[in-house]
């Protein structure tokens, strides 16, 4: 904004009055307080936290006192008054650090607040079992049998060796061996045949270092087939020892 001519005059007059007033009153005004005398003493400082042990989420009161300091800072709070207190909500254990300074020197004080962390939720056991069950299913393969047989054929001996390696690495795992049969033949004989298949697998694992104490056997005979068509490939699927993780 551009000042008009009359405005300029007002400003100049006002300044003149101010100058005149200040020039006139100078002798009457009291002298300003003298600057503090240069401190002669070393600063003192104290810092406390009460309580000094809290549970997470609880508050503690931080109290400090200093003398002779010209500059007081607390790390977590910045510049503070020479004395004071503050309510704090630390989320974890904290060491509060105060620095009091003056021209003579520096004094530090610390206060430690221990925060008890909340009980960590126990790792859900199912998760671990699920992992174990998944690993079991991936690593322990079923074995298959010829018609009316509970003899373990050479290729399945190899499968059992691989199974045993995994089971030895996981000695706490317990498991069930289910014996299954194809749909041919009689219900009761197939139950017995299924038990003999499960038992044959259990017996074959013993010399491979897998204790029978870890194994439960059960027969399903032809009551729970994996495949329900009346074909040889389907029947082969059903003549098996099926390994099941026991949670």
């Amino acid at each position: 904004m551009k000042l008009t001519r009359s405005q300029w005059i007002k400003v100049v007059l006002a300044l003149a009055v101010v100058l005149a007033v200040s020039a006139c009153g100078k002798k009457q005004v009291a002298a300003p307080p003298p600057p503090p005398p240069p401190p002669q003493l070393f600063p003192t400082a104290s810092l406390t936290a009460n309580p000094n042990t809290i549970n997470a989420g609880q508050a503690t009161t931080l109290t400090w006192n200093t003398e002779h300091a010209t500059d007081v800072t607390i790390d977590q709070l910045g510049k503070v008054d020479p004395s004071g207190s503050r309510t704090m909500l630390p989320s974890q254990s904290t060491t509060y650090h105060l620095v009091a300074k003056n021209a003579v020197g520096t004094q530090e004080a610390t206060a430690r607040v221990t925060v008890v962390p909340p009980q960590p939720p126990p790792p859900p056991p199912p998760t671990s079992n699920e992992t174990e069950a998944r690993m079991f299913a991936q690593n322990v393969q079923d074995i298959f049998f010829a018609y009316d047989s509970y003899d373990i054929e050479p290729q399945y001996q190899k499968v059992l060796q691989a199974d045993a390696r995994f089971l030895q690495q996981h000695p706490n795992i317990k498991f069930t061996i289910e014996g299954h049969c194809d749909e041919r033949g009689s219900t009761e004989y197939n139950l017995a045949l299924g038990d003999n298949r499960a038992n044959a697998a259990k017996q074959a694992l013993a010399p491979l270092g897998i204790s029978g104490d870890r194994i439960r056997t059960v027969s399903y005979g032809k009551e729970k087939p994996f495949c329900t068509e009346s074909t040889e490939s389907c029947w082969q699927q059903n003549r098996r020892a099926h390994f099941v993780y026991q949670p």
Partner: peptide, 9 residues
């Protein structure tokens, strides 16, 4: 009855 209590039936 038939039992597998001793291993084989």
């Amino acid at each position: 009855f038939s039992s597998s209590r001793s291993g084989n039936t």
